[in-house]
């Protein structure tokens, strides 16, 4: 990852408009507003796929949760971190790899994503912890690695046509 400070979303893309597949690479600063802008960039970058609203909402939710986790945890108390996302997609599947140089996951492992119990009193309802549940539940081939100072999370999102 490039070390210089980046003030906004940077994107390079290599799309094949005729074959309806492509590659997107984004580098964004690790903050909430850049995550929002990054998701908009991905949406327009993948527009050649004409994804269904349902498929896009899954892509957006999963990538949002992955990026939010990096902002909130890997780069907690830091406002200079960068996040790099590689997206490689076809009509059937999105392959995604997200890299950061923040803190490691707790114990070097993926957090579990068990569903939260909501059959409780209102006062005991969970207000957080849904993010990893969405990621585990909606992705396939979820993998995390820590090498040197770098976290890499990779996963696949099958589109409706494959279901």
């Amino acid at each position: 990852m490039r070390p210089e400070k980046i003030s906004d979303v940077c994107m390079s893309s290599d799309r094949n408009y005729h074959g309806k597949n492509g590659v997107l690479r984004l580098v964004i600063p690790a903050n909430d507003r850049s995550v929002r802008r990054g998701l908009m960039t991905i949406k327009s970058g993948m527009s050649n796929l004409s994804l269904s609203q349902d498929d896009w909402s899954t892509v957006e939710l999963v990538i949002a949760e992955v990026l939010n986790n990096i902002v909130e945890h890997a780069y907690a108390n830091s406002d200079t971190g960068l996040i790099e996302a590689h997206l490689d997609y076809s009509q059937d599947t999105l392959h995604c790899k997200v890299i950061d140089t923040g803190r490691s996951m707790p114990n070097g492992k993926l957090p579990k994503g068990a569903p939260k119990d909501v059959t409780c009193d209102i006062s005991d309802l969970p207000e957080g912890g849904f993010g990893w549940f969405f990621i585990h539940h909606l992705t396939r081939d979820l993998h995390y690695a820590r090498h040197a100072n770098q976290n890499t999370l990779s996963f696949r999102l099958p589109f409706e046509s494959e279901h």
């Binding site: 957006e60 949002a64 949760e65 939010n68 207000e127 957080g128 849904f130 993010g131 969405f134």
Partner: peptide
């Protein structure tokens, strides 16, 4: 159009 886990948490917090 879009609600993530932090948005859901905020709606739950409003209920509580």
């Amino acid at each position: 159009e879009f609600l993530d886990s932090s948005g859901l948490g905020a709606v739950v917090a409003a209920l509580k």
